[in-house]
Design a binder for these strands. Sequence first.
DNA 1: AGCCTTTATGATACAGAGAATCACCGCACC
DNA 2: GGTGCGGTGATTCTCTGTATCATAAAGGCT
Lengths: 144, 144
Amino acid sequence: MSKASHLKDIGLKATGPRLTILELFENSETRHLSAEDIYRKLLSDEVDIGLATIYRVLTQFEQAGILVRHHFESGKAVYELNQGGHHDHMVCVGCGTVTEFFDPEIERLQERIAKQHGFAIQDHSLYLYGECAECQSRRAPGKR
Amino acid sequence: MSKASHLKDIGLKATGPRLTILELFENSETRHLSAEDIYRKLLSDEVDIGLATIYRVLTQFEQAGILVRHHFESGKAVYELNQGGHHDHMVCVGCGTVTEFFDPEIERLQERIAKQHGFAIQDHSLYLYGECAECQSRRAPGKR
DNA sequence: AGCCTTTATGATACAGAGAATCACCGCACC
DNA sequence: GGTGCGGTGATTCTCTGTATCATAAAGGCT
């Protein structure tokens, strides 16, 4: 299915900005992008899309399930392509790198805890913050 | 140890606003308070503390380890008394109630995953969002 | 107690992320 | 080829939270 018809299927016109932003996610090295990231990236590519449009499109894509939104500690929201599999995130406080992981055991334990409290989970967020291997050795070479 | 000397020990003068805010946390029904919550609570108690002061004091208390800060999905930061034991949170999207829990197994698994990636955890945040038992039965009485 | 230095306070201005507004544009449909 | 309607982008607004700065209050000292 083409990108254009994919957008139409969810009730959104296949406009220039929307296709551009979608392609940006598909071609980006870094999976996780903030509105600002996208804005600046497009500016440097000589593509002029207003910041308001970017926020709008990101929100629409999130509601349509094309993107998933995360709030890391930075305070600003980042988005990534929704490729089906749920996963959690490990964020390096040194370089900002985001590593994804999935642990079925943790998922199961969360469900068990919720059940114990009569709580119906709709969503959850698990972020590990710390230092990645590269940043550790950069900071203390020789060690470890 | 008195509250006043506790504050002095961490290098903070025992001023009115600081003692008031500390007592508010100790006497509050709801463990988790935002700056706004505190501001409005104090206003209704005829205590006039500037919002700037509240933000400052909260930040200082967090740095001193007296309070712990959380970012739920609401976007605004909430604080709770740091009473030693780490725990995670379950937030009801219906009524906003926050339930605390601790699962040593989940903690252990997080550490294992980090180690597998050579990642040194400094901190983590785990929030479960969903509907609490009360809200479920309120929405669909009779069911479940 | 009274002085004096330091720190805290509160009003206000500012900053940054993101949402709302609104005139204009352009595509789809008649 | 008009016309209607959703989409766009410039701008304004809102909401948290921070920085500024003149004034006030703590706490040490005598």
